[in-house]
Nucleic acid binder design. Structure first.
Length: 431
RNA sequence: UCCGCAGUAGCUCAAUGGUGGAGCAUUCGGCUGUUAACCGAAGGGUUGUAGGUUCGAGUCCUACCUGCGGAGCCA
């Protein structure tokens, strides 16, 4: 008989099925033994009644420890007393392995212990739900771009130089060619690709060797970066807005039960619909000043500042036209004010901070040369990038969205570490 | 990197400078409806490491290690 997945049990009521999975928990009560099985698609309570299966089978079932692997044959019935509403009455079962005492019990554990056991922690229903939502977000992001004329063109992970600062790069030897660095962003490559394909996106891991230790930083995280030729700042904002609405609304619709497992209050997520508020950096500074926050014009917003700004709105807020001094060299200046860059950040609601950063890019060769000099960057590293402004330069724009921050926001996580299956942080490289 | 906090049984935590305990997990026994079951019993310890103070240190002091919370920087 073929394996039935727990997710499909409702279609097999009254029938005999084969379940393959792991013991999630078990309780025996004299002549009754309850075994909760998980198979990756859900949980199902299975029950043995001693007089029905006989002494030998019943005794064998009492040996099953948490996370023992097992194949069960039994009949599906509706049962109100069972979590999930269905129950399998076990007729026979085959033990694949009796698991050793499992370190993660159903009681409380500290974060250090759970992180150390991340490879096992993934099995718990909360972590399972988070990674299902992560998957849905990834699928919806790719579908959005794939269905809107974008071509996927990924940048390299090993790169010859920094595109912003060098102190935050992971470094490695590269044969006879000196040092290579793990990418911080595929953006420059996305710009090159956009000049070939018009609308492109890249999606891959990025690395930051920042010694930062906060609830919203990983040293390795995934970023999705669209880049569009002939798009200005407003087009870029339109894209960010439409994109966010799509991925959030689709995830809300398709991952209801997972959000319930996480006990996520989705009221803020439901409001993620166009149009989002669009405010300038100047307006954002005014919001801080109105709340009596001492903030100096020209600085970038800190985590606490972002939270205060985002709390003034009930949906993601787009902040545009930042002081150019706090932004990257490749961002185009505002023609109406030299001190401003045509930059764009999107702050998620509920204090989840910056999930998108982007800009219209500098498309003038001479201005770009000037910026590289001002930032004291090694000119020779950017020769190929400068070519993009020599051979048919056009206005273009793009942004990057941090996947893990988005997952943390959608799932309502207190710390970004739960948003990645195997998070990499300053003080953790294992498992 | 800086500031703060912590490290005791497999896990979560107690223990006034004076005999290191409990709950869960594990093992054994009991129970026909458990939902993190319950009841009874047992096993389980170089108190992060190295020094120091003291008649006596899990507890006080110093250094180090490891982790956690926060800041700066960023997505």
């Amino acid at each position: 008989m073929p394996q039935t997945y727990i997710k499909e049990l409702s279609k097999h009521v009254g029938l005999s099925v084969v379940l393959k999975g792991w013991v999630y928990n078990s309780t025996n009560k004299g002549k009754l033994n309850f075994i909760i099985i998980r198979d990756g698609t859900g949980l199902c309570q299975c029950v043995l009644f001693k007089p029905n299966v006989g002494d030998e089978v019943f005794q064998k079932s009492l040996q099953l420890t948490q996370e023992s692997s097992i194949i069960i044959t039994g009949k599906v019935k509706e049962e109100k007393r069972s979590p999930g509403g269905f129950e399998v009455e076990i007729e026979k079962f085959e033990i694949i392995q009796i698991a050793e005492p499992y370190p993660i019990s159903p009681k409380d554990h500290g974060i250090d212990f759970l992180s150390e056991n991340r490879h096992l922690w993934l099995r718990s229903s909360r972590q399972h739900a988070i990674l299902k939502i992560r998957h849905e977000l990834i699928r919806s992001m790719r579908d959005y771009f794939d269905n809107n004329g974008f071509t996927l063109i990924d940048g390299p992970i090993l790169t010859p130089a920094a595109c912003e600062g060098t102190s935050t790069l992971f470094e490695t030897e590269y044969f006879d060619l000196g040092k290579a660095y793990l990418t911080q962003s595929s953006q420059l490559y996305a710009e090159a690709s956009a000049m070939a394909h018009g609308k492109v996106y890249s999606f891959g891991p990025t690395f930051r060797a920042e010694k930062s230790k906060t609830r919203r930083h990983l040293t390795e995280f995934w970023m999705i970066e669209p880049e569009v030729a002939f798009a200005d700042l407003n087009d870029n904002m339109d894209l960010a807005e439409d994109f966010l609405e799509y991925i959030i609304q689709r995830t809300l619709k398709n991952k209801k039960s997972e959000l319930e497992i996480l006990e996520r209050n989705t009221s803020f997520l439901e409001k993620v619909k166009k149009p989002f508020p669009r405010i300038s950096y100047d307006d954002a500074v005014k919001i801080l000043h109105k709340k009596n926050i001492p903030f100096e014009w020209g600085n970038d917003f800190g985590g606490a500042d972002e939270t205060i700004i985002s709390q003034a709105f009930d949906r993601p807020v787009l902040i545009h036209r930042y002081p150019s001094v706090v932004k990257a060299f490749y961002m185009k200046r505002d023609p109406e004010n030299e001190k401003l860059a045509l930059a764009l950040d999107v702050l998620a609601p509920e204090g989840y901070g910056e999930i998108i950063g982007g800009s219209q890019r500098e498309d003038d060769l001479n201005l770009l040369l000037k910026r590289i000099e001002e930032h004291k960057l090694p000119m020779e590293a950017f020769n190929w990038y400068l070519d993009l402004r020599k051979y048919g330069t056009v206005p273009h724009s793009g942004f990057g969205l941090g996947l893990e921050r988005t997952v943390a926001w959608v799932c309502g996580l207190e710390h970004i570490r739960e948003s990645s299956p195997f998070p990499r942080m300053i003080h953790r490289i294992t498992p």
